[in-house]
Design a protein around this nucleic acid. Structure first.
Lengths: 201, 201, 201, 201
DNA sequence: AATGAATGAGGTTTCATTCAT
DNA sequence: GATGAATGAAACCTCATTCAT
């Protein structure tokens, strides 16, 4: 499990993402993963401790990427509004570029009992804390309403995005052709920022 | 599966909700359900076709209750804002009165492969359509912004609620003692209605 | 695992003894046992918790029989010498009537790591304690030498028997045709009782 | 498998003895042996053909030592009684100086299916034949009773020793502190030589 | 309707051994 | 000789479901 074999380890992870996305974690066989990856059955167990570990590794590594991205956004940009927009944008584009990974992250990971370990929550919560921190800065600068908890705001933001993407993934009545992702993203941002109530003059 | 044995059928469903909520659908054994219900293994199969069927029956029956409630709200109330508030309120209170059922509905049902059948989506979407319809009425009356799709709005609303409740259920760092449910609900409503950006005078 | 299904449970145990005796515990497959017993694969796991449990059940139940026999011998007979002779006789005859069981008891059970649990030792030692007690009674009556620990005597007795039977089971150069079991038993008893040294007048 | 690499080969054998003694042959992993020996997995297969071969090599080499010792005893000493005493003594002292090896020799080797090959029996039996030969000489000299087969006598001797040592190794109720090895050895010899029955004047 | 013993297909994991470097 | 990543066959056990009673 050293750092040297990144390539093969990465090959297995990619194969696992593909397989999990197609069949769901529980319906996926470890044999499916190894054959998709083009490696021997046993090789899975050189790089991962168990099927569980593969799923949670996907979460850890990809969620860390999201977290890194958020941190970079906070360093690069200056306006909280821009930051939140960019994060939402990044999540939507992540779905577009790798829908499979997003399916796994949204559907398989949080369904899995082993996901709910303290360490995983620390990582999971780190994202919400970053988002909340951005929000709090917005409040400090007088840009965002003061009577809302930054953490609740982060849940509202992520929840709106997550649920919408879930429709693209699973809702047979809802797809990119009929309702372009770009448009959805824009409207989500609009609702979150301005609310849906018409501003009384 | 007649209407006569409601009691026993209902006993099994309640037992299943409790078991699924505690261990998750996949880690739950049919034996756990039958012993929790105080009936024999085989009895499960008198009332349900399979373990799947139990889970989906929970979804169908409880989601139908939600849907009925929403319809009643639409019949009873007149203001879209009030309606949405009452619906959000109802969901939060459902969680309070039966957290187990909400766990199953939020975590197990939508993550089950068999859930994604056309009939289930019809029922599932019906809720979002009702919500969207309320929103559309609000738009017609000039209360809600016009440049947002009612369906997207419904996803934003439900997503914010769902993700927040999920924290109460699973997030070890987030609980009712530290952050009262009532307060969370109020802030969610506030964000959705007014947005988090300070309204420029 | 109730007492009602003795027959089926017993059928499985007998099949397991046969299979273990033929191939040894580790080379035996659970499927071999179920097919030998003529029951379904899964039935093994209705009556036993694991393959381990089958082996240890054989030990427990058969060793208990030996123990019961020894107790009965102590109740029935009066002379310690007769008792010991009868016990040795019983062990040899057990081997003759069911060599497979003896192979399992002598070779597979004590080889198994799980055998070395406190409860099993209690049962295992109970036999040696009975034997030692008989010996001690012989000492009290002035029949047996006083300067030997009854426990050590019991080990010497059992060890001589066990090792000899082991030859019949495994030694290709040693078998009943060339060296009748009866004769071996008689000589073992003679050695233990009188020693191999010629008594000096 | 040449003679040049004795050191490394010997290192592996010692490591294997330690590992086998601790966990038993079947629960020992080849990886355990190689890491205990401080060599790579593959190195095991430079010196031995298989895991089996390691175990049987232990038997062959250590049993040969015992055999050599017995032969030397026969050359050096003159009295059969002294010879047997010295052999028993040697076995007990072997256990004291390397209990691990004795555990492997007593428990793992004779319980391994592959052990029962003709060549191994030749070697194994050689020990009993030497012992029997000593006994036969005693009979010739009129020291030992004539109506006992020397081979059976050798089984009785070895069995008594083997079973007693087994108690020291495994029996939680029996250990050197409570019952000194020296004492056990003396009593075993006494029983075998003089029997446990009181000699009638 | 109710029971629960019986079923057996199916999946994860282990681990001795190989072989390219 | 030495290495250890790679291999893949093999096996235990689980557990949803059935069906005779």
């Amino acid at each position: 499990m050293g750092e040297k074999n990144r390539p093969k380890r990465e090959i297995i992870l990619k194969a696992a993402i593909k397989v999990f996305a197609e069949k769901g974690y529980h319906s996926s066989r470890t044999a499916d993963i190894s054959s998709e990856a083009g490696v021997a059955y046993g090789s899975l167990y050189h790089y991962f401790q168990s099927k569980d570990d593969i799923l949670l590794s996907i979460f850890r590594e990809r969620w860390q990427l999201l977290l890194d991205k958020v941190k970079k956004i906070r360093e690069t940009l200056t306006e909280p509004g821009e930051m939140i927009l960019t994060i939402i944008d990044y999540i939507f584009r992540s779905y577009q570029s790798d829908p499979g990974m997003m399916k796994v992250l949204i559907m398989d990971v949080p369904r899995h009992a082993q996901f709910y370990s303290p360490e995983n929550w620390v990582l999971y919560n780190a994202f919400f804390k970053e988002l909340a921190e951005i929000f709090r800065e917005g409040q400090e600068r007088g840009l965002y309403v003061n009577n809302v908890s930054p953490l609740i705001a982060s849940y509202a933001i992520y929840g709106a995005v997550d649920t919408t993407i879930r429709q693209y993934v699973y809702n047979p009545e809802f797809n990119d052709d009929e309702f372009p992702l770009e448009k959805a993203r824009g409207q989500i941002v609009q609702i979150l920022k301005g609310g849906f109530a018409v501003r009384e003059a």
